[in-house]
Simulated scan of single mutants.
Amino acid sequence: MEQRLRPGIEGRGAQSRNVPRRFGLASRQDDGDWLDQIEVQDGPPVKLRTTVTEEHPRSILSFNTSPDVPFDRSINAYRGCEHGCIYCFARPSHAYLDLSPGLDFETRLFAKPDAARLLRETLAKPKYQPKWIAMGTNTDPYQPIEARYRITRQVLELCLDVRHPVTITTKSDRILRDLDLLTQLAQRNLVAVAISITTMDARLSGKLEPRASSPAKRMAALGVLAKAGIPAHISIAPVIPAITDEFMEVLIEQAGDLQVGSASWIPLRLPHEVAPLFREWLSVHYPERGDKVMSIVQQIRNGRDNDPGFFTRMKPAGVWADLFRARFRLACKRAGIGKAEIDLDCSQFRRPDLSGQMRLI
């Protein structure tokens, strides 16, 4: 496919649209009419603009039976993410919309403004049993368009009203805009927050996750949350061999100085289209180091770019993986940071009123 976009696109993570092959879309690569239509919809290739489409699903709470994640239900208020993290494992989900996991994922976004109403309807069902809801497990609930739509805030308001536990994972200090709600939820043991930081190098972050909050702002936000009594967790995710792993110790040390309670790390995952997108990113930003990075990735992933198996996808193997684990444990011990243990209170839950009226007490 002829490249319509120059490499090194400023302010974006992906360097192309990377047409997915899993759904029979590869034949479009030579479809000139389709490529022309891209320009009609998005404008000239060098002028990438973010668009948002409102989506109105029938339900908002997603359930899973995955044996290697600590939650069984989640809410994703948005599809796609403007943060543009090149390593984001959620990128392939855009292929289900007949869109590219590359640039479309970070420029053609979808918002679900009915999320709080739909959640209220689900929580009101007589058979519903509360267990903490995870937010930010796919796309970021505090990406820039949250300032306009405030969907995450509406969900938190509902959770506070009905006393339902919730966890949040984000790469944005915008979460502090909801500090009032988070503080009230924390006082009732109804919330835990994880902020993901990959590096303390602002320039590197600008390449990896170009529209996420700066690492310094994210670290500062962790400190504010911890000081406010909100269970705060630093997630070093992902750890990219020979790119970001050198920052593991300093991230944990700084988090410990801020009294952050727990930490975790997740190795780089490259499912489906993320692998070629990441390789392309390496060829643009680290051409001299790309082979080394992918060699280590394959060594911890049983010789492949990605290991999709349950349990093993979260637990890399081999000498490099053992080294990362040892470094992480030692850094946490030095910083006085423990392992994350989510134990939120489900006993306070009170079924909502479908009239939508909030309680005064």
Score class of each variant (00 low, 15 high):
Glu249Asp: 11
Ile252Gln: 05
Asp305Met: 05
Pro231Lys: 05
Ile296Gln: 02
Met294Leu: 09
Gln259Phe: 09
Leu277Pro: 00
Gly318Lys: 03
Ile243His: 05
Ser264Ile: 03
Ile240Glu: 06
Ile236Phe: 15
Ser235Thr: 14
Glu288Pro: 06
Lys315Asp: 15
Gly309Trp: 12
Leu251Met: 09
Lys292Met: 12
Pro287Asp: 11
Leu268Met: 04
Gly229Asp: 14
Leu282Phe: 08
Ile300Glu: 06
Gly318Tyr: 07
Leu268Pro: 01
Leu258Asn: 04
Glu253Met: 03
Ile240His: 05
Ser235Ile: 12
Lys292Pro: 08
Asp291Pro: 01
Leu277Lys: 02
Pro271Ile: 15
Arg269Phe: 08
Phe311Cys: 02
Lys227Ala: 12
Pro287His: 12
Pro316Glu: 00
Met248Cys: 08
Ile240Lys: 07
Val319Glu: 14
Gly290Asn: 09
Ile234Glu: 03
Ser262Thr: 13
Ser264Tyr: 00
Arg301Tyr: 07
Glu273Pro: 01
Lys292Leu: 13
Pro308Leu: 15
Phe247His: 15
Pro231Met: 06
Pro241Met: 01
Lys315Met: 15
Arg304Glu: 11
Ser262Asp: 11
Val239Phe: 02
Ile240Trp: 03
Ile230Gln: 01
Gly256Met: 10
Trp320Thr: 09
Val239His: 05
Thr244Gln: 05
Asp307Asn: 14
Ala255Gln: 06
Gly303His: 11
Ser295Val: 08
Phe247Thr: 09
Asp307Gln: 05
Ala263His: 00
Gly256Thr: 12
Gly303Lys: 12
Ile300Arg: 04
Gly309Thr: 13
Ala321Met: 01
Asp257Pro: 06
Glu280Tyr: 11
Phe247Ile: 07
Pro271Ser: 15
Asp305Phe: 02
Lys227Arg: 14
Phe278Leu: 04
Pro316Asn: 04
Ala317Leu: 13
Phe247Tyr: 14
Phe247Asn: 11
Ser264Ala: 12
Pro316Met: 02
Glu280Gly: 03
Ser235Pro: 12
Arg289Leu: 10
Trp265Phe: 09
Pro241Val: 03
Asp305Gln: 07
Gln299Ala: 13
Leu277Ala: 08
Ile234Gln: 03
Gly229Tyr: 12
Pro276Tyr: 08
Gln259Arg: 13
Gln254Glu: 14
Pro276Glu: 14
Pro267Leu: 09
Gln259Asp: 14
Phe278Val: 04
Pro231Val: 00
Gln299Arg: 14
Val260Ile: 04
Asp291Cys: 08
Asn302Asp: 12
Asp322Val: 04
Ser264Trp: 12
Gln259Glu: 14
Gly229His: 12
Asn306Glu: 12
Phe311Gly: 01
Arg313Tyr: 08
Pro287Arg: 14
Asp257Asn: 13
Ala237Met: 11
Ser262Ile: 09
Arg304Thr: 08
Tyr286Leu: 11
Gly318Ala: 09
Gln298Leu: 08
Arg289Ala: 10
Gly318Leu: 01
Asp245Pro: 02
Gly309Tyr: 13
